[in-house]
Protein backbone atom coordinates (compact mmCIF):
# COMPACT_ATOMS: atom_id res chain seq x y z
CA UNK A 1 0.00 0.00 0.00
CA UNK A 2 2.85 2.29 0.84
CA UNK A 3 4.31 1.66 -2.53
CA UNK A 4 1.10 2.51 -4.27
CA UNK A 5 0.93 5.84 -2.54
CA UNK A 6 4.41 6.64 -3.65
CA UNK A 7 3.51 5.75 -7.18
CA UNK A 8 0.63 8.20 -7.23
CA UNK A 9 2.93 10.93 -6.17
CA UNK A 10 5.30 10.11 -8.93
CA UNK A 11 2.62 10.27 -11.54
CA UNK A 12 2.29 13.97 -11.11
CA UNK A 13 5.75 14.36 -12.50
CA UNK A 14 4.97 13.02 -15.91
CA UNK A 15 5.55 14.98 -19.01
CA UNK A 16 2.25 15.85 -20.45
CA UNK A 17 1.55 15.42 -24.10
CA UNK A 18 -2.15 14.91 -23.75
CA UNK A 19 -4.17 13.58 -26.54
CA UNK A 20 -6.80 15.76 -28.06
CA UNK A 21 -8.17 15.52 -31.51
CA UNK A 22 -6.95 18.98 -32.38
CA UNK A 23 -3.27 19.27 -31.49
CA UNK A 24 -2.99 15.55 -31.97
CA UNK A 25 0.47 14.17 -31.24
CA UNK A 26 0.54 10.53 -32.22
CA UNK A 27 2.31 8.07 -30.02
CA UNK A 28 4.24 5.65 -32.10
CA UNK A 29 6.43 2.82 -31.03
CA UNK A 30 9.07 1.35 -33.29
CA UNK A 31 10.52 -2.05 -32.62
CA UNK A 32 13.97 -1.89 -34.14
CA UNK A 33 16.42 -4.72 -34.50
CA UNK A 34 19.82 -4.33 -33.00
CA UNK A 35 21.76 -4.90 -36.21
CA UNK A 36 20.07 -2.94 -38.93
CA UNK A 37 17.23 -0.64 -38.16
CA UNK A 38 18.50 0.53 -34.77
CA UNK A 39 21.86 1.54 -36.24
CA UNK A 40 19.95 3.12 -39.12
CA UNK A 41 18.16 5.30 -36.59
CA UNK A 42 21.52 6.16 -35.09
CA UNK A 43 22.74 7.06 -38.53
CA UNK A 44 19.77 9.33 -39.05
CA UNK A 45 20.97 11.16 -35.98
CA UNK A 46 24.54 11.34 -37.15
CA UNK A 47 23.35 12.83 -40.42
CA UNK A 48 20.99 15.17 -38.54
CA UNK A 49 18.05 13.98 -40.57
CA UNK A 50 15.01 15.53 -38.98
CA UNK A 51 11.84 13.62 -38.31
CA UNK A 52 8.95 14.03 -35.89
CA UNK A 53 9.39 13.33 -32.19
CA UNK A 54 6.45 11.00 -32.06
CA UNK A 55 8.38 7.85 -32.78
CA UNK A 56 9.95 6.01 -29.84
CA UNK A 57 12.28 3.12 -30.39
CA UNK A 58 12.29 -0.12 -28.46
CA UNK A 59 15.40 -2.11 -29.24
CA UNK A 60 15.13 -5.84 -29.80
CA UNK A 61 17.94 -8.12 -30.84
CA UNK A 62 16.12 -9.38 -33.88
CA UNK A 63 12.90 -8.56 -35.70
CA UNK A 64 12.03 -12.21 -35.31
CA UNK A 65 11.65 -11.54 -31.60
CA UNK A 66 8.66 -9.28 -32.14
CA UNK A 67 5.54 -11.25 -31.38
CA UNK A 68 1.92 -10.32 -32.02
CA UNK A 69 1.67 -9.84 -28.28
CA UNK A 70 4.14 -6.93 -28.30
CA UNK A 71 2.26 -5.20 -31.04
CA UNK A 72 -1.13 -5.80 -29.44
CA UNK A 73 0.23 -4.71 -26.10
CA UNK A 74 1.38 -1.46 -27.66
CA UNK A 75 -2.01 -0.84 -29.21
CA UNK A 76 -3.73 -1.79 -26.01
CA UNK A 77 -1.64 0.69 -24.09
CA UNK A 78 -2.56 3.45 -26.48
CA UNK A 79 -0.15 3.38 -29.39
CA UNK A 80 -1.45 5.23 -32.40
CA UNK A 81 0.96 3.39 -34.63
CA UNK A 82 3.41 0.52 -34.41
CA UNK A 83 6.42 0.14 -36.65
CA UNK A 84 8.42 -3.03 -36.85
CA UNK A 85 11.73 -2.39 -38.56
CA UNK A 86 14.08 -5.21 -39.40
CA UNK A 87 17.02 -5.99 -41.61
CA UNK A 88 16.49 -6.72 -45.25
CA UNK A 89 16.12 -10.45 -45.63
CA UNK A 90 19.56 -10.92 -47.07
CA UNK A 91 21.26 -8.81 -44.38
CA UNK A 92 19.76 -10.51 -41.36
CA UNK A 93 22.36 -11.05 -38.70
CA UNK A 94 20.56 -14.22 -37.69
CA UNK A 95 19.96 -15.53 -41.22
CA UNK A 96 16.22 -15.80 -41.25
CA UNK A 97 15.09 -13.57 -38.42
CA UNK A 98 13.80 -10.88 -40.74
CA UNK A 99 11.86 -13.46 -42.70
CA UNK A 100 10.35 -14.80 -39.51
CA UNK A 101 9.42 -11.30 -38.50
CA UNK A 102 7.62 -10.94 -41.79
CA UNK A 103 5.76 -14.21 -41.21
CA UNK A 104 4.71 -13.22 -37.72
CA UNK A 105 3.77 -9.83 -39.02
CA UNK A 106 1.19 -11.40 -41.31
CA UNK A 107 -0.55 -12.91 -38.29
CA UNK A 108 -0.38 -9.67 -36.35
CA UNK A 109 -1.74 -7.78 -39.29
CA UNK A 110 -4.74 -10.06 -39.57
CA UNK A 111 -5.47 -9.74 -35.87
CA UNK A 112 -5.25 -5.98 -35.83
CA UNK A 113 -7.29 -5.73 -38.96
CA UNK A 114 -10.01 -7.85 -37.44
CA UNK A 115 -9.95 -5.68 -34.37
CA UNK A 116 -10.76 -2.76 -36.60
CA UNK A 117 -7.41 -1.12 -36.14
CA UNK A 118 -6.70 0.70 -39.39
CA UNK A 119 -4.25 -1.23 -41.51
CA UNK A 120 -1.97 1.76 -41.81
CA UNK A 121 -1.35 1.87 -38.09
CA UNK A 122 0.85 -1.17 -38.27
CA UNK A 123 3.83 -1.22 -40.53
CA UNK A 124 6.68 -3.55 -41.23
CA UNK A 125 9.70 -2.20 -43.03
CA UNK A 126 13.19 -3.27 -43.85
CA UNK A 127 15.92 -0.78 -43.09
CA UNK A 128 19.57 -1.68 -43.31
CA UNK A 129 22.14 -0.06 -41.09
CA UNK A 130 23.28 2.05 -44.00
CA UNK A 131 19.83 3.37 -44.70
CA UNK A 132 19.68 6.24 -42.28
CA UNK A 133 17.82 8.28 -44.82
CA UNK A 134 15.27 5.56 -45.21
CA UNK A 135 14.79 5.42 -41.48
CA UNK A 136 14.14 9.12 -41.30
CA UNK A 137 11.86 8.95 -44.29
CA UNK A 138 9.89 6.04 -42.91
CA UNK A 139 9.64 7.76 -39.53
CA UNK A 140 8.39 10.91 -41.18
CA UNK A 141 5.95 9.22 -43.49
CA UNK A 142 4.63 6.87 -40.87
CA UNK A 143 4.06 9.74 -38.46
CA UNK A 144 2.33 11.68 -41.22
CA UNK A 145 0.11 8.72 -41.94
CA UNK A 146 -0.82 8.30 -38.30
CA UNK A 147 -1.39 12.01 -37.90
CA UNK A 148 -3.77 11.87 -40.83
CA UNK A 149 -5.58 8.91 -39.33
CA UNK A 150 -6.03 10.69 -36.05
CA UNK A 151 -5.89 9.12 -32.61
CA UNK A 152 -6.36 5.41 -32.26
CA UNK A 153 -9.73 4.61 -30.79
CA UNK A 154 -8.09 2.16 -28.46
CA UNK A 155 -6.58 3.50 -25.37
CA UNK A 156 -6.06 2.22 -21.98
CA UNK A 157 -8.92 3.64 -20.02
CA UNK A 158 -8.18 3.38 -16.38
CA UNK A 159 -11.62 3.02 -14.97
CA UNK A 160 -12.79 2.15 -11.56
CA UNK A 161 -14.74 -1.04 -11.17
CA UNK A 162 -18.32 -0.09 -10.67
CA UNK A 163 -19.44 -0.04 -7.12
CA UNK A 164 -22.03 -2.74 -7.52
CA UNK A 165 -19.43 -5.22 -8.57
CA UNK A 166 -16.92 -4.04 -6.05
CA UNK A 167 -19.36 -4.51 -3.24
CA UNK A 168 -20.62 -7.82 -4.43
Amino acid sequence: MKQAAKKTKKRSGRSTTRRSSKGFEPKIVAFCCNWCSYPAADGAGVSRLQYPTNIKIVRVMCGGRVTPSFVLKAFELGADGVLVATCHFEDCHYMFGARKAADVHKVTEKLTEMLGIEKERLKLDWISSAEATKFARVAQEFTDTIRRLGPSSIKKRLGAISEAIENE
Binding site: S15, D42, A44, R48, Q50, Y51, T53, K56, I57
Partner: peptide, 23 residues
Protein backbone atom coordinates in the same frame (compact mmCIF):
# COMPACT_ATOMS: atom_id res chain seq x y z
CA UNK B 1 19.59 7.20 -26.60
CA UNK B 2 18.61 10.83 -26.25
CA UNK B 3 21.21 12.03 -28.73
CA UNK B 4 20.89 9.98 -31.91
CA UNK B 5 17.19 9.44 -31.40
CA UNK B 6 16.31 12.77 -29.96
CA UNK B 7 18.41 15.92 -29.91
CA UNK B 8 20.00 15.26 -33.27
CA UNK B 9 16.84 14.39 -35.09
CA UNK B 10 14.55 16.95 -33.49
CA UNK B 11 16.79 19.98 -33.57
CA UNK B 12 14.02 22.41 -34.28
CA UNK B 13 11.63 21.20 -31.61
CA UNK B 14 13.38 21.67 -28.28
CA UNK B 15 10.23 21.36 -26.18
CA UNK B 16 9.01 18.20 -27.82
CA UNK B 17 12.52 16.83 -27.89
CA UNK B 18 12.80 17.38 -24.15
CA UNK B 19 9.50 15.61 -23.65
CA UNK B 20 10.73 12.74 -25.75
CA UNK B 21 14.01 12.60 -23.85
CA UNK B 22 12.01 12.28 -20.66
CA UNK B 23 9.99 9.50 -22.21
Amino acid sequence: NIRNQCSWVHQKEPVKATDKAKE
